[in-house]
């Protein structure tokens, strides 16, 4: 039935991670000088860009994942029959 074909869209994930992602990017844009300084220091400060990359990827990754699902763009389902 149609019930099987309609999938619930992840609106909650979309909004929560959307807000978090926007906040992170706002902070990055407004604190560019500090970020530049921390990145150029090197040595153990190397952890700063690495951790930043992970945090942004997690938050923004979840947001973009939900984004395409909310728009209804999903991977093709595998079917057994061959043309």
């Amino acid at each position: 039935m149609e019930r099987v074909l309609v999938k619930k869209r992840p609106y909650k994930k979309f909004f929560v991670f959307g807000i978090l992602s926007t906040t992170l990017y706002y902070l990055l844009i407004t604190h560019q000088e500090l970020v530049k300084e921390l990145c150029s220091k090197g040595k153990w400060y190397a952890l700063f860009p690495i951790i930043t990359a992970f945090v942004f990827s997690f938050v923004h990754g979840n947001f973009t994942d939900a984004f395409w699902s909310v728009l209804g763009i999903e991977p093709k389902k595998k079917r057994k029959e061959v043309k």
Partner: peptide, 26 residues
């Protein structure tokens, strides 16, 4: 990054667009 060559701003703005793209590409 240990030698101070990673500009995380460049990396993260690229990431902003590319995560939208990579999911769609996959």
């Amino acid at each position: 990054a240990w030698s101070g060559f990673v500009d995380i701003r460049l990396a993260m703005f690229i990431l902003l667009g590319s995560l939208f793209g990579v999911q769609l590409g996959a």
